[in-house]
Simulated scan of single mutants.
Amino acid sequence: MATNPSTKDEKNLQQVLDKIETMDESVRGIMRRMHEVITAAAPELKPRIWYGMPGYAKSASSPVLVFFRKDELMTLGISEKAPLKPAGDHDGLLMPAAWYFEDLDEATERRVAEIVRSAVS
């Protein structure tokens, strides 16, 4: 049921929810859950559409820090505006910034929450 949002944040949230609802039925539930995990991990983030997909920023006018999308695979990513750090060890100076997933389980949800919290710190 569509609502008539009044604030910019509410309008942006509704656009994100609407975008998720247009995704293929086979992944729609997973993407809804991804939205829930992100917003629970960092409730201060504001959802909005970013390059046509759900993104999350500190405000409606600040850069997106976290996003997810569905192409061939589902992707969770952090943007270059998040505090990226080299992975170290065998990855040297590479900075992890994107993860592919096919489904969400408890362990994956915990890791997503960690990634989101690190992107807002």
Rank of each mutant, 00 (worst) to 15 (best):
A2N: 08
N4T: 14
N4E: 04
S6Q: 11
S6M: 06
K11I: 04
N12M: 08
Q14W: 09
Q15R: 13
Q15P: 00
D18A: 06
D18F: 08
K19N: 05
K19A: 03
M23P: 00
E25H: 08
E25R: 10
S26D: 03
S26L: 04
S26M: 03
M31G: 02
E36N: 07
V37A: 02
V37C: 01
L45M: 11
I49N: 04
W50M: 01
W50C: 00
P54A: 03
Y56R: 09
A57Y: 12
A57Q: 09
S59R: 14
A60G: 09
P63F: 14
V64D: 01
V66Q: 02
V66Y: 06
R69I: 12
K70L: 03
D71F: 15
L73C: 10
L76R: 14
L76Y: 14
L76S: 08
L76A: 09
I78E: 00
I78P: 00
E80F: 15
E80M: 15
L84H: 09
K85G: 03
K85E: 09
A87D: 03
D91N: 13
D91G: 10
D91F: 15
P96S: 07
W99H: 10
E109A: 04
R110T: 08
R111H: 10
R111S: 06
V112D: 00
V112M: 05
V112N: 01
E114N: 06
V116H: 09
S118A: 14
A119K: 10
